[in-house]
Design a protein around this nucleic acid. Structure first.
Lengths: 124, 124
DNA sequence: GGCCGGCGTTCACGGCCCGTTCACATCTCC
DNA sequence: GGAGATGTGAACGGGCCGTGAACGCCGGCC
């Protein structure tokens, strides 16, 4: 496999989620998700670094291609949009996890509602 | 199955839709669709790459056999014509899905009307 | 030839999607 | 409780796309 593996037909898998950046397409359970360009790019960059906490600034510069202004909420807004669509497609899963004060982390986790209703264990 | 499968008696199936390019024929529920040459060619090229997003430029060059001029809306107009005829033949299905800023994607999906009338996440 | 209808192309209008930003609500941590 | 971070809904403007229709071309028919 070449170094620049994502130059051609890259396929990202995060749990039941499948992302094909070169096809501008993301699939969940064999259904295509209807994502806008920004949404797909953000999802792609998150998925490329799954299980890692990504700072807002890092995400922004990867997706928007420029430095993030302090106070810019674009990342938050698009995380929200992705969460809504992912929740609709895969109600039993959660993918984008907030790390207070740092940023977000992509990881497929079942939304097992325990009697404590507590799913946190990841800390920063 | 031979590599150049569509050189002879190619049969494309997309959900309940059946396309026989060599016979200049498309069938839905055992009924032949009345399609013009252009319509059939566009439908064929879309069906050959089902589940993949095809850029307008790519579609145009495949169907029209020349480069697309910027701003040319021919693909859109013919997508519309196909949608009308497919909708008439198979009201419960949708086949040609718009991907904003890129082009179109062929995939058979049921048009499940929720109580909110919102089909966005089903790609429909 | 003249009429007619289907087809392909092009245009224009309008609706809606998308990206951006703001305002307010809610949450986290101390 | 309080300050700051994050969640969430919505407004707004630009531009992409849906849509109807006009126009010319061509072949069929009388």
């Amino acid at each position: 496999m070449p170094l620049a593996a994502h130059t051609r037909s890259e396929v990202l898998r995060v749990g039941p989620l499948e992302i094909l950046p070169d096809e501008h397409l993301a699939r969940a359970a064999d259904r295509a998700l209807m994502l806008s360009i920004r949404e797909l790019r953000l999802l792609t960059e998150l998925a490329r670094r799954a299980d890692r906490i990504m700072a807002r600034e890092e995400l922004f510069s990867l997706v928007w291609g420029r430095e993030m202004r302090t106070g810019d909420r674009s990342v938050d807004v698009y995380v929200r949009k992705l969460r809504v669509k992912l929740e609709a497609a895969l109600p039993d899963w959660s993918f984008i996890h907030t790390h207070f004060g740092f940023g977000y982390r992509m990881a497929a986790e079942r939304t097992q509602r325990t009697r404590h209703g507590n799913e946190r264990f990841t800390t920063g």
